[in-house]
Amino acid sequence: MAQPRLDPIAQPTAGRVWRYGDGVNTDAIFPGKYTYTLREPGEIAAHALEDLDPAFAEQAQPGDIVVAGRNWGHGSSREQAVTCLKYKGVAAIVARSFARIYFRNGINQGLLLLTSPEAVEVARSGDRMAIDLARCLIHLEGREIRFPPLSPSIHSILQAGGLAPHLRERLRLSGAAPTGLDT
C-alpha cells in the first residue's frame, strides 16, 4: 500500500486532464469480473478504465485529473471504481454530476470529487488543470472557475484521508479502539 497520499486539502492539486463523456458506468471504470479477486492497489489500478480508454492505465500520471459529464460512476456500488483511479494517482474528478453511491465512495476514499459544469464545458484532454480548495477555484487554460465550498462533514472526511482513517481517529478519541494502531 505504498501509494503516495495526495492531500487535496493541504495543497493545490494540478495535473493533466483526462476528459470523458456522459453516463460512464462502473463497469467501464472497473470491470465487474475483477471485483472479488483483485485486492492489491497496483493490480486494481492496472485495470482502471480498461473498457473505456486503454491508454489511461498506461499513461496517466500521479496528479492527473479526470473530467467527465453527467452521472459519472452510475451502476455498481463497487469501491474499486474509485480506488482504481486513486491508486493510479488521480488527484480529483470533476464532473457535471456524480451517481450517488459513487460520490459517497469517492469522499469515503479521500478522493476529491467536484461538481463544476462550467469546468466540464471548457476542459479538453491534455489541458492543465489546477484545483485550489482553499479558495474554491479551478484554474484551467487561463480561466478561473469558482465552485461551491465543501460541506464541513465532507471536508473533515477528506482531511482525514477518507472515512476509515476518519473513523479510526474518532474511535481512538472515544477510547473504543486500541491506540497506537498504524493507519
Binding site: 453511491i101 469515503n108 476509515a164
Partner: peptide, 14 residues
C-alpha cells in the same frame, strides 16, 4: 439503499 464497502465497515464498527 446501496452503500460502499468502507461504509459497510463503518456500520459494522458503529
Amino acid at each position: 439503499a446501496g452503500i460502499g464497502r468502507t461504509e459497510a465497515a463503518a456500520l459494522w464498527a458503529t
